[in-house]
Design a binder for these strands. Structure first.
Lengths: 239, 239
DNA sequence: AAAAAGGTGCCAAAATATGGCACCATACGT
DNA sequence: ACGTATGGTGCCATATTTTGGCACCTTTTT
């Protein structure tokens, strides 16, 4: 039996039985007492909290809080998780958000450090506005993960982004702006871009954006994005 | 050098250099060409996308989208992440939520199967209502991760939950109810409980709950929780 | 055609994991 | 006080896995 498989088996048995002795574990996984002891030691090193009671009636006990799992996530997936949790947290000091943060912090720690810096920079561009009443979502859903890579590249590399936009009146235009921030007014998301030809900020509903493309050969500087109600009135954004 | 460490080293080198040959990798990690080839094969099996160009001027190239990370998360942390993403998704078909789901699906796959079933059951009890306008949050924040274990145990084990409750008028009572659902009306969270002594549903603001305790020796059955506006009027909940 | 690259199969050698043993410490019951 | 059941450690020979070397194949560029 593979080491990994055996470790998983031991965790499973401990979780199932609540408590177990080393000899019982050894018999069930088909390994020697000595090996199981080594496995327990390895599991503790890996972060599992395993209590042990010595003496008659004693045994091993896995702290149920410490059941852990390890999944390999891609960077865009981590990105998406971070955004979800950041938006939740910004929308109010919700229960569990601290715990979710702790989980994400672990994920971050496992990332290459340059990627972490990139993610933090992106989150700095994330603004969550006042929560809006629920509305008709029939127009939503056109924002697909396909759009993410271009946005990620544009934000992280400080590149201009070019995309096709369909405005509230259905007119289609091609735009090219500096992606300065993302504004979240649930359930709608907006790209806040600086339009250099108009020398002004413009807001774009994410679900009306298509074919985004980061212009890798261009660069821009971060600006201070105004988010006061009067600068970016709610009613106008919803249109 | 440890296998795991060497795999990480190879990924790091490929990320850094963009492209590299097997011989160069072998020299840098201090292993043989054959071993590196085996490592590449293992990494591909593990989900990394590694392109290879054969012939003069060729080499290996790691698809930057496939950079992965692996962090060990505890069950409560995963729980919290699931809740965040589920709430976000329920609040509207937000950008990135599909991708976040994909990430969570991977995390779920790495969990023991019985835990996954538990989590799904819990998420079934999660109702997200209409989003409310942002309000004064000064009263929030008393919901701490400390409360989570008791709620988790109570929901997953279908145990009664007993807690101290401070109502809108500041009166303190001890309650014992069947935890039937969680209702999310951002930024407030409610426990929806069936009170057997009153034979009716009652809603409790999570931030007014303290000292929750799952009664491990009791059991209840899931009920159909009504969530129509008239049964559980929004204005009443906010009080 | 030659050179430079990725890739596979095989086998002996090196490294690592395992099992067995002796032994220690602690707790509980008689 | 003693025996027994439990977790825990050190050591070493043995079993298993990983590694390196080699021969050889395919593809691509010069």
């Amino acid at each position: 039996m593979n080491v990994r498989v055996r470790h998983d088996a031991i965790v499973r048995i401990l979780r199932r039985n609540g408590t177990s002795t080393i000899d019982a574990l050894a018999e069930e996984v088909g390994a020697s007492r000595r090996t199981v002891l080594r496995d327990i030691s390895a599991l503790r090193d890996a972060g599992y909290v395993i209590h042990s009671d010595v003496g008659r009636g004693g045994g091993l006990q896995l702290d149920p809080q410490s059941v852990q799992t390890s999944a390999r996530l891609t960077v865009p997936e981590i990105f998406a998780l971070l955004i979800s949790v950041a938006a939740m947290r910004a929308a109010g000091n919700l229960p569990f958000s601290k715990l979710a943060d702790a989980g994400l912090a672990k994920i971050e720690k496992a990332l290459p450090s340059d990627k972490v810096k990139d993610l933090r920079n992106f989150l700095d561009c994330l603004h969550v506005g006042p929560l809006s009443p629920l509305q008709d979502l029939s127009d939503m859903g056109r924002m697909t993960p396909d759009l993410l890579p271009a946005f990620e590249r544009a934000f992280l590399g400080a590149h201009f982004i070019r995309f096709d936009y369909r405005d509230a009146k259905g007119r289609k235009t091609q735009r090219e702006v500096e992606p300065q921030a993302m504004l979240i007014l649930p359930p709608l998301w907006y790209l806040v871009g600086w339009d250099p030809t108009r020398s002004d900020f413009r807001h774009f509903r994410m679900d009306r954006i298509s074919q985004p493309k980061a212009m890798a050969d261009t660069h821009f500087r971060r600006r201070h994005v105004p988010f006061e109600e009067d600068v970016c009135p709610y009613s106008e954004l919803q249109s």
